[in-house]
């Protein structure tokens, strides 16, 4: 019995011996409730950025405590914005780097950019202006950016309604570059207002040059919904030439769809907000629809992006709902990740 009484002591010693030597649980109270101080003034690594050549801009600084911060970059010409946030004790290339990408459209141009570092405890802590000498290059297959107008080989159909505007426009409202495609009109007898098609043949190939793995391929586009429009619906259709005979046969080949709407519609769709929207969908998440309802694909039922032969964008609206409008820009396929604008 006397020996057995030693057992609890041994167990406790064993547990103490195995304990981790970390004295503090959770964040330090000083970080949460202490006064904020800058230990190293904020500095930027360069005043000019050639993003096309891979330049990066980053800040360096040190604080006395864990700090919520936000770096806001604003294009002085385009109005583009980039926001980077964090909660750290320091700023450096690992947590506060800007590669020229955009948070709020339009995308940055070659322009002067104002950079502001905002600290919750101290409002704007630092401010400076840098210049972009070239914008970043986005990897991917660009279907359309409308910078050179309508490409030869694209085809369009526009109803003979009122105030029809299926045209490429050039102004500062473009999400990318200087031009975008403006689709609008009033058609009170049909859902279809107009459409534009991008056949692979317009790129001098029977099929789009895409990877075969639908899980690694993303379809991206930028869509603008005007403030006053509530009825817009853009239907993308993706036709696959499954048998490779150069033509799409609706009865035996796959047709996948993507609905982007200003309102809630039946089935899978992307709900649009006012202003520019980034739409990014993995290719294998495109669905088969017949009259807006889910349906079984007519072909092999596989998502085969390397067999994609035609993309169509159909601009639709309820014929009783009045005028509708939407802008479209920068249709691009990216691999492994969605578009980082």
């Amino acid at each position: 019995m006397k020996h057995l009484l030693r057992l609890p002591v041994l167990l406790l010693l064993l547990t103490y011996g195995c304990s981790k030597d970390i004295p503090v649980d959770g964040p330090e109270l000083l970080d949460l409730f202490g006064d904020f101080q800058v230990l190293q003034p904020v500095q930027i690594n360069r005043k000019q950025a050639d993003f096309a050549q891979g330049d990066l801009l980053f800040l360096q600084s040190r604080f006395n405590k864990l700090t919520d911060w936000e770096l806001v970059c604003t294009g002085l010409n385009s109005g583009a914005k980039k926001s980077i946030t964090g909660k750290t004790r320091f700023l450096d290339s690992t947590n506060c780097t800007w590669n020229g990408s955009t948070t709020i459209f339009p995308m940055f141009k070659e322009e002067a950019v104002e950079m502001k570092l905002i600290i919750a405890e101290d409002s704007v802590l630092w401010r400076d202006t840098v210049s972009i000498t070239s914008t970043r290059v986005i990897e991917g297959f660009v279907v359309a950016d409308f910078e050179t107008g309508i490409r030869p080989g694209w085809s369009s159909f526009v109803q003979s309604g009122a105030n029809m505007s299926f045209v490429v426009r050039q102004n500062n409202s473009a999400a990318q570059g200087n031009r975008y495609y403006d689709m609008g009109g009033l058609v009170n007898w049909d859902w279809l207002i107009g459409m534009i098609e991008f056949p692979a043949s317009a790129y001098q190939a029977p099929r789009f040059p895409l990877i075969p793995n639908p899980e690694k391929l993303y379809f991206n586009t930028l869509l603008y919904l005007p403030d006053s429009v509530e009825n817009a619906l853009l239907l993308f259709q993706f036709r696959e030439d499954d048998n490779g005979n150069g033509t799409f046969e609706a009865a035996t080949e796959d047709l996948y769809s993507l609905q982007c709407a200003a309102y809630t519609v039946n089935g899978a769709h992307q709900r649009l907000q006012k202003g520019w929207n980034k739409i990014s969908v993995r290719y294998n998440e495109l669905v088969s629809l017949v009259n807006g309802q889910p349906a079984t694909p007519a072909g092999n039922g596989r998502h085969d992006p390397d067999k994609l032969s035609r993309i169509s964008a159909l601009f639709l609206a309820n014929p009783t709902s009045g005028y509708s409008q939407m802008y479209m820009d920068y249709i691009i396929f990216t691999e492994n990740a969605s578009l980082e604008p």
């Binding site: 304990s19 970390i22 004295p23 503090v24 649980d25 959770g26 330090e28 109270l29 000083l30």
Partner: peptide
């Protein structure tokens, strides 16, 4: 007693 301090040592 706490084993680890809560926010401080």
């Amino acid at each position: 007693m706490d084993i680890k301090g809560q926010g401080i040592a």
